[in-house]
Nucleic acid binder design. Structure first.
Lengths: 104, 104
DNA sequence: ATTTTATTTCAAGGAAAGTTGAAATGAAAG
DNA sequence: CTTTCATTTCAACTTTCCTTGAAATAAAAT
């Protein structure tokens, strides 16, 4: 799942969608609004959103005709934790960057 | 640079190399040792190492015939910070996961 | 029922990345 | 200066991913 998440956010368009959804917060955004915000076609946006969904980065729910996408902040947190703990073995240099900006 | 770094660690083999270099610590490992450790051919390993080098994740230096690769822990820390700060806008849920395991 | 709006799915073509094995480089040793 | 060892580069092939535009689905309004 971590590999898929890393692959997902390594696309320029998807990282833009990601940031967009961070700004939107827990309320999320409809697919069409996301497409407009990042300047991509609906079908391309839909493609990228389902990629992000498979990677566990976003969740979705339908309200009438619109489908709202929300960033799964817990899942993103778990990804960061995986990186820090499982990949970096809690390395101090890396950990310090996560705690305070000036340590980095 | 962040995009390249995410793309780099989204490959199974490269993530294995990454973990291998975390274990090796600041002393690093020679290319051949890395290849043996991850069970990949020298040429494939070399390919992946130069990908990681371009992404800024590792540095290298030659000692006689061997080339030692080291993980750039500062660069990894900066990547984590970028993710937390620039991408996630210091979101509390995400930040909590980086600070303490039980919060995640 | 038909139309409109929002979104997804599909097929096809193009671009990028991964793999392999052989050849090339660079450095030390005989 | 030829051989050996460690690593990289290259070419060819395969696989995977991205993009586009058209068609399909899903829900609401007329």
């Amino acid at each position: 799942m971590a590999l898929a998440a890393f692959a997902s956010i390594s696309s320029k368009t998807r990282l833009r969608i990601f940031k967009c959804l961070v700004e939107a917060g827990s309320g999320g955004l409809a697919a069409g609004q996301i497409a407009a915000a990042v300047g991509a076609t609906p079908s391309r946006t839909s493609f990228h959103l389902s990629n992000m969904s498979e990677a566990g980065l976003v969740s979705s729910s339908r309200q009438a005709r619109q489908i709202t996408y929300r960033l799964d902040f817990k899942s993103v947190g778990a990804l960061m934790r995986y990186m820090l703990e499982d990949c970096c073995n809690n390395n101090e240099t890396v950990r310090a960057c996560c705690v305070a900006k000036d340590k980095c």
